[in-house]
């Protein structure tokens, strides 16, 4: 598989993708909050689709493109989002943020008309216990208007 554009080998195909990312590659931006697909902290892009990496085996990612939070800066939506999340003071402990970054970047990258409702739905799989989501949603909406995706 490719992770953030770099070919990766030597991993155990039976391991969880999350463990390959965190332990084999040492990319610890991707977090584990539940291990069973309920919290979204481990969200990564698999060929552009957000997935819970705790539910994917490394073998299933064979030959595919994986993007983690560390790899998002290279896409314009990801870079805008980073800036807006900081400026809006949209994060607190930040543990959910890598997952939110991934889900929201995917949403911005492929949605023509971004609305408050579409943002809430796009990040509804990412549990955040600190923020109450209001600032997260407005940060994503501002990032969308900056990239021209905001209706």
């Amino acid at each position: 598989m490719n992770v953030n554009g770099t070919a990766v080998t030597g991993y155990d195909a039976g391991a969880r993708l999350l463990d390959v990312i965190r332990e084999h590659l040492g990319l610890r931006g991707t977090k584990e909050g539940c291990g069973v697909g309920e919290c979204g902290s481990c969200t990564v892009l698999l060929d552009g689709e957000p997935v819970c990496s705790c539910l994917v085996l490394a073998g299933q990612a064979e030959g595919r493109e994986v993007t983690t939070v560390e790899g998002l800066a290279s896409c314009p939506a990801g870079a805008r989002l980073r800036e807006q999340l900081v400026d809006h003071q949209a994060l607190q402990c930040g543990y959910c943020i890598p997952g939110v970054m991934v889900s929201a970047t995917a949403h911005l990258s492929r949605t023509e008309e971004v609305t408050e409702e579409s943002v809430r739905t796009a990040i509804s799989g990412n549990l955040c216990r600190c923020t109450g989501y209001t600032k997260l949603v407005s940060a994503v909406l501002t990032a969308a208007s900056d990239t021209g995706a905001h209706s």
Partner: peptide, 18 residues
């Protein structure tokens, strides 16, 4: 003043080590 957290930049880039 509304000042972003000192760690905010490291958080959004996934660099903050918990």
């Amino acid at each position: 003043r509304s000042v972003p957290a000192d760690d905010a930049g490291a958080i959004v880039s996934g660099a903050l080590s918990y």
